[in-house]
Design a protein around this nucleic acid. Structure first.
Lengths: 165, 165
DNA sequence: CAGAAGTTCATGCAAATGCATGAAACTACC
DNA sequence: GGTAGTTTCATGCATTTGCATGAACTTCTG
């Protein structure tokens, strides 16, 4: 058991992620969206432009009710639309509109440039590849007693509630 | 310019952080606190148990008003207390109470064990050290036109607003 | 020292979030 | 086929968040 190396590694990872995310947000990478909204568009694009709500939720950083309402907002903004899943009257399919897809691509390109200029400044290509490899291992579902259905994980940062305090 | 390696590296980092954070929260690492509340206690402990609000904010994942109200709540729960900074009537010093310090240590120990058991399962010690090194480089303030006063960064994930949509 | 400018924290308010729950649709079992 | 149970999404509600702003205090300038 190496708390000696594990805890500092986690803390550095955590801080690096926060630091970079703040940097990207301050640089307006996601404008005119919030990062969470971009996350929805990005995930949808990755799913071919459309997906069922229930399949989307586990990849996003928010609860099911939050996604439901965010989809309301984004739909009324015209970047995506809701459809009833055929074959299942309960299911809702969320799909990018043309405008939404174009917006995602535009923001995505800008964000990728921003990422590169930031990472290239401090890591060599080899280091970037190594970082990716290590981070990928961290998501290995092989472990822990709980996970099993994790595959293309994505985002979040939630919370809990009391008990004593 | 290596978007080829930079973007995947950032995405892997991002997902690894989210994945692990979710894991720790689902494992109730921070109970009876939320992760943000623990972040406050942890940061305070690291500052020797007390710090001024304005010095705390940049290390935390929340806005100044949010910290102000969270301190209200934590103070009324008895884990910390507010004092007026002497020499500056505007300043507020936030300090851990004995209970707060004990709580932080207890939760912290549990969290460190949780981190170790998770990371040790997928990374060797050498890999953990290397991950830490790479993540530390990512926080190098040497770069970007904006940062300059960053030192012991910490947490966040914010948002922006529209403009077009 | 007086007034302007800056700093630090708190508060009003609208928006977003999560939890608990509800409604609608589908599935399983008798 | 009908009813119980499950799945999927939406909604009520309390909480939390951030932004804009205000109040109290300090510092700077002449």
């Amino acid at each position: 058991m190496s708390a000696r190396t594990a805890a500092p590694a986690w803390e550095a990872l955590f801080r690096a992620q926060v630091h970079l995310m703040r940097h990207f947000e301050e640089a307006k990478d996601f404008a005119p969206l919030t990062s969470r909204e971009y996350d929805v568009l990005f995930t949808l694009a990755r799913c071919g432009g459309a997906a069922r709500m229930r399949d989307l939720v586990p990849h996003l950083l928010m609860s099911q009710p939050s996604l439901s309402r965010m989809v309301d907002r984004l739909a009324s903004d015209g970047v995506l639309e809701r459809r009833i899943a055929d074959g299942d009257g309960r299911g809702v399919i969320v799909a990018l509109t043309d405008r939404g897809a174009e917006l995602q691509r535009r923001v995505g390109r800008r964000h990728v440039r921003s990422i590169s200029s930031r990472l290239d400044a401090v890591l060599t290509e080899d280091e970037q590849v190594e970082l990716r490899r290590l981070c990928a291992k961290l998501q290995d579902p092989e472990t822990g007693p709980d996970d099993a259905r994790h595959a293309g994980e994505t985002r979040r940062a939630g919370s809990q509630k009391e008990e004593e305090r």
